[in-house]
Amino acid sequence: MTLAFRSGFRLAASRITWSRLAVAAVLGSMAAFGWATAVRRASPLSAPDSLLSAGFAFGLPLVAYAIVGVVVERAGLSAATWPVARFGLSRRGVALGFGIAAWLASLVVVAPALALGLGAAYRGSPGFPSDCAVALGLAALGSGAYVGGFLLASTAMRRGRARSLVLVLDFVFGAGTSVLASPWPRAHLASLLGGGPVMQLTQRQSSCVLAVVAVGTLGWALARLRR
């Protein structure tokens, strides 16, 4: 299992590549910086909130979606593990390596963008360090939930095309706060950023839901794979 996990992690890393990651991080940071600067000009007080809302509603899911797509080579999760699983290593161990690698890669792209964007939004105003720390924590939680969800979706439909479906459903249903919104990370992340509570859940409970979604979907994805 350890060899399978390590090999899965390295296989995922070899597919993502540092250069792609660096380009994505730079482009993401530039976009966040540009957004925050533009919003700050119009409304300095709402710039941080605006940046975080946009970042967590659109940026984070799209980054996780793209990274998981690259890790599984836009195929199904089972097929993506084949280069390593062919040697008799557990597909589940390999997929776990995929999940951790994709989660870390999402953070590598999102974290600098958030930090730079928030820096531009605050521009020396107090509150930057604490907001930045909270945002990075949310990014870690949200990335985990999205990566797990997309990996689970990669086990369904031909070539894991359910990934796109999950992205759309999260966008549509995650915009609300009703029971339909409850499984979708977007709704809970919005709640944690000060939006309406999902099904009257507290922010602490929403955090727990995100953690459960992250671990649960990843576990479910692994369980759907044959050894």
């Binding site: 399978a4 699983a85 062919r86 040697f87 008799g88 290593l89 557990s90 597909r91 044959r226 050894r227």
Partner: peptide, 13 residues
Amino acid sequence: PFDDATCRARIGA
């Protein structure tokens, strides 16, 4: 073979 990693480990292809 598809379901069993131990079995796959004994296949050269």
